[in-house]
């Protein structure tokens, strides 16, 4: 902890107070910079199109209307279909839940092996996994499309689940590995002497300690998968698209009048699940971000 005010000298109390005030004003201005886009989104979504055209971007709505929200949810057009975001929200949920669970479970087992059951070559496998976290996914798009076709999963939600599990494993393994590495090896040794096996040790020693890292992994994977666009747009078809793809189609469809209020309502709906997770479990979200990017 460093304290700017401490060194400014107690002999200048007025200068010190002014500096404090300046600091808070500056921090407040930055907070505005981050909040204004959200504010604009919310207010625009509550205005009528007429008011949007005649009024100012940053003005509060004169008349609050939820029509845009209703349309974004169940009537906006994503191309030829006009069912709103509802079916795509469902797709994203059906996609995210299994993908998050599977990649977290496999990641936990992998991390357990790499951290506590080292065998010759385990480190090399871990390194190979880590490098996999960093590849630009463009390099696997073409063969993946072909592979999904071969497996009969092209354009399907199970296909997308497979993709997200495979490319999420590097991160989930990393999370659990870094967490389990801090558990003393003596614990495992003692359990082995007592006759406990691989799964027994995991089940009764490691799993009960794992809640925080499970939360980190689940949140990380959920945010990644929910917000993914590249895989969604490459490997889905009409009817199986995730919500980000549908949102983009609503906003960038060229037919008809541009309904900015519907666009904004749709954007907020698409953002709500991850925003909610962030507000409820921000601490774990940040842990995942820093662990996933600093160490990986």
């Amino acid at each position: 902890m460093t304290d700017l005010s401490a060194t400014q000298g107690a002999s200048r109390p007025w200068g010190k107070i002014a500096l404090r005030w300046g600091l808070y004003v500056l921090l407040g201005l930055f907070a505005l910079y981050y909040l204004v886009p959200l504010f604009v989104m919310v207010t625009t979504s509550l205005k009528s199109l007429d008011e949007i055209r005649s009024g100012s971007l940053i003005a509060l709505p004169r008349e609050v209307t939820f029509d845009a929200w209703a349309k974004a949810w169940s009537g906006a057009c994503t191309g030829i279909q006009c069912e709103g975001l509802k079916p795509y929200m469902w797709n994203s949920i059906l996609l995210a839940i299994p993908a998050v669970l599977i990649s977290t479970v496999i990641g936990a087992m992998n991390g357990y092996v790499v951290a506590q059951w080292r065998f010759r070559g385990a480190n090399i496998i871990f390194a190979l996994l880590l490098f996999g976290c960093f590849i630009p996914f463009q390099v696997v798009l073409l063969p993946m499309a072909k592979m999904l076709g071969i497996l009969g999963l092209a354009g399907s939600i199970p296909g997308l689940i497979l993709v997200h599990v495979v490319y999420g494993l590097g991160f989930t393994t990393l999370f659990f590995r870094n967490y389990y590495v801090t558990i003393p090896a003596e614990l495992v040794k003692a359990a082995k002497i007592d006759g406990a096996g691989f799964f027994r040790i995991f089940w009764s020693i490691f799993l009960p300690l794992s809640l925080p890292i499970i939360v980190v992994s689940v949140i990380w994977q959920f945010t990644q998968i929910w917000n993914d666009f590249l895989f969604g747009v490459s490997f889905s078809q009409a009817g199986t698209q995730p919500i980000t793809v549908a949102l983009n189609n609503i906003v960038n469809s060229t037919t008809g009048v541009k309904e900015y209020n519907v666009d904004m309502a749709a954007a907020i709906i698409a953002a709500l699940p991850t925003l909610l997770v962030y507000v409820v479990a921000g601490k774990y979200f940040i842990r995942g971000l820093t662990a996933g990017s600093v160490k990986g």
Binding site: F229, A271, Y278, I286
Partner: peptide, 15 residues
């Protein structure tokens, strides 16, 4: 300061 990181880039782009 950090909440934008929880948003999809598509949402950020739309806004």
């Amino acid at each position: 300061y950090l909440y934008p990181m929880a948003l999809s880039m598509i949402v950020t782009g739309t806004a």
